[in-house]
Write a protein that binds this DNA or RNA. Structure first.
Lengths: 132, 132
DNA sequence: TATGAAGCTTCCGGTCGCTGGAAGGTCAAG
DNA sequence: CTTGACCTTCCAGCGACCGGAAGCTTCATA
């Protein structure tokens, strides 16, 4: 199967598949006589795994770790769990950070009448030491 | 005032101040005889404004827009409000995305016993079409 | 069989918002 | 006069790709 079809079937773009190969996340694909990359079902499975892990926000590096554990039949599920728990903590921290921003922004926006007059509590808030 | 002190007083690192100058977010600083950048209170104010806007998650480009409005005494507060509202929407979207990830991750982690055995619902979940 | 479109290849550069480091000039204290 | 803490410029790299150019290959159609 060509890279284009592999891309369609895995949800990972052809560009990105090449990139993953280049950085060593996936092994170099087998080539056809003409030099085209050739993929089978196993590779599609791997790409799908990667796609799902990425869509859950795991870094490419973490995905590398998960892939290694996925392939290792004698893995300890605790190792997988640790990676996932660390990641969930990072996600929660990011959410908290964004909610802090959101709160401050909404508070500023609520106080701004938002018409053609120049006085603006949003800009005032950014001028004073409003936040943190 | 040297760039180092300006950095300390504004909360923007010296490296970053130079970077902001380079990309045109702030005008080129006045130089001393020796070629050192020289900052006054007005510049510190500007840097603080930038620092706060960045800490609320505005892109550097948006900060440029906000700075222009900040300096424009005949601005319409509606213009500021629009930038802020657009940004808050983007922040909310990002939060929703992260919460979706968090939900899925927590569900997977809860099902994983996390010991030295190899069977692991987290990896299974990443293999199947679990999400989306 | 020719031709043209669609696919593949590599390589290079850009994105965003910085950060680190090398090589060198300047300044104030001891 | 030296030392160390500044400052300067320039270049490279991070993460996770995307876009595009130049040049193959493959396949369907005229």
């Amino acid at each position: 199967m060509n890279i284009g079809q592999a891309a369609r079937r895995s949800g990972v773009s052809a560009k990105t598949i090449r990139y993953y190969e280049e950085i060593g996340l996936i092994p170099a694909a087998v080539r056809t006589g003409a030099g085209y990359r050739d993929y089978g079902e196993a590779e599609i499975e791997t790409l799908r795994f990667i796609q799902r892990a990425r869509s859950l926000g795991f870094s490419v590096k973490d995905v590398g770790g998960l892939l290694a554990l996925w392939r290792d039949r004698s893995r300890a599920s605790a190792d997988v769990r640790r990676i996932a728990r660390d990641h969930v903590l990072a996600v929660e921290q990011k959410i908290a950070e964004l909610e802090g921003m959101r709160r401050t922004l909404v508070a500023l926006i609520d106080r701004c009448h938002g018409d053609d007059r120049p006085d603006c509590p949003i800009l005032d808030g950014l001028s004073d030491s409003c936040c943190h």
